[in-house]
Design a protein around this nucleic acid. Structure first.
Lengths: 226, 226
DNA sequence: CGACTCATCAAGTGGTCTATTGATTACTTG
DNA sequence: CAAGTAATCAATAGACCACTTGATGAGTCG
């Protein structure tokens, strides 16, 4: 037994703490949601269909692995990612999964078919074109996520409200809708609705966290008109 | 129950396959070794102190998660990383662990103390300086790893052989030693030996896989003189 | 062919993880 | 202070994981 064994065992034991925390579907979904904005235990539990107690336990597991932090405000405990690097880690997992797992490709193809929204826009392309007054960048996520951070210049139209707010949206513009990430359907639905009403629309392939991670311009807060 | 639940469950279930594979210390160590070069089951088992059967099982788990691939040659089965992105994933885990886990920092400090090798060289710095004829870049890893890929222009002096090959190494040069990665001790030992024999030496902070991932110049094969 | 080696398989055991349940704590509000 | 809500705790059953052991498969070589 070489002497360095002990050190290496402990070293990789520490790395594995992170790995273990990433080994559960619910925890990964939580991290993805927390990449948008901080959230309460209850809101995470409700959105993901996990019981409150169970969600609390998973969040504590993530906290043990130092992937998230929490703060208490009144009755609520808000959890947030502990570090931007945690999102990069999630992105790395998804990147490997997407490239290597045939099951995933099958699943995505089954869900999106031949993509109702062809020609997705890439981050760099949008960075160029968003300055044009002919392009409207539309954030399809819930308002709270928009307010916590969004692509600079984007307007907030949560996908649930898009239908009834269609009349407020000019017809002669070109729309680029985005949402939480490549596997989120909000932007797809937004594009569907916009196209259904004779507007030109495409979706951004990536979501807001990817935009921010790329270092592209971001705004916080901002008014929401109804 | 919203209808998209089913899709999301399956989606994150797939991502979690990757996560689960990363949740074991031995598997993480295997991945790190495979980031240097392909290896047989037996060699991995021996180097890490894991039983052969157990190593085989872990490797199959990694293969199930599509993180590694294997080929059979004669009696031996060689495993290798399935994709460069897998190394990036490991690096992302280590990056988060290093930043966020206090236990890890304590462990590393305990092992390396105040680093016997101050002033480590950074990748970019070496990229600049390696063209100077006053600098010798020394690969302290085993020969097989050197041959599978090394920093362009580096010489191979496995740390075990360094002592008896010291006389072959000029005294008026400046040495930069590197090895598998930031937590590998080979380069540290090499620097110690070089300094102990009145040579100027520093270690590269990162290892070869990081160099390669950065897109810096790499060479394969190459003669090894004895 | 028979002996040998590398690797995998199969089965079993102890340990860990997950989700549920019901109780408890922490805080706010009337 | 009593009632109500968000979150955590504690205990548990069932599923899953890790490692060992001994047997089996696959390939080489004398």
């Amino acid at each position: 037994m070489p002497k360095h064994r002990d050190f290496k065992d402990r070293l990789y034991g520490q790395f594995a703490r992170i790995g273990k925390a990433l080994g559960n579907p619910h925890r990964l979904e939580f991290l993805e949601l927390l990449a948008q904005c901080e959230r309460t235990v209850d809101s995470l539990a409700t959105e993901t269909g996990v019981s409150l107690a169970n969600a609390s336990q998973h969040l504590q597991a993530l906290k043990q692995a130092a992937l998230v932090e929490s703060r208490k405000q009144g009755l609520f405990v808000y959890y947030r990612l502990a570090d931007p690097a945690v999102f990069e880690l999630c992105a790395a997992i998804q990147s490997v999964a997407q490239r290597r797992l045939a099951d995933l490709e099958r699943l995505v193809h089954e869900q999106f078919g031949d993509r109702a929204t062809p020609e997705p826009v890439r981050l760099e392309e949008l960075l160029e074109r968003r300055r044009s007054s002919a392009v409207i960048v539309l954030d399809a996520r819930p308002v709270s996520e928009y307010q916590a951070g969004h692509i600079a210049g984007a307007i907030s139209v949560p996908v649930d409200e898009l239908q009834r707010r269609l009349r407020q949206l000019p017809k002669n513009k070109e729309y680029v809708a985005y949402c939480r990430g490549p596997y989120c359907v909000y932007a797809d639905r937004a594009v569907e609705l916009l196209r259904g009403s004779k507007r030109r629309a495409r979706r951004l392939l990536q979501g807001f966290p990817e935009w921010r991670a790329a270092g592209f311009p971001v705004e916080h807060g901002g008014d929401v008109w109804h």
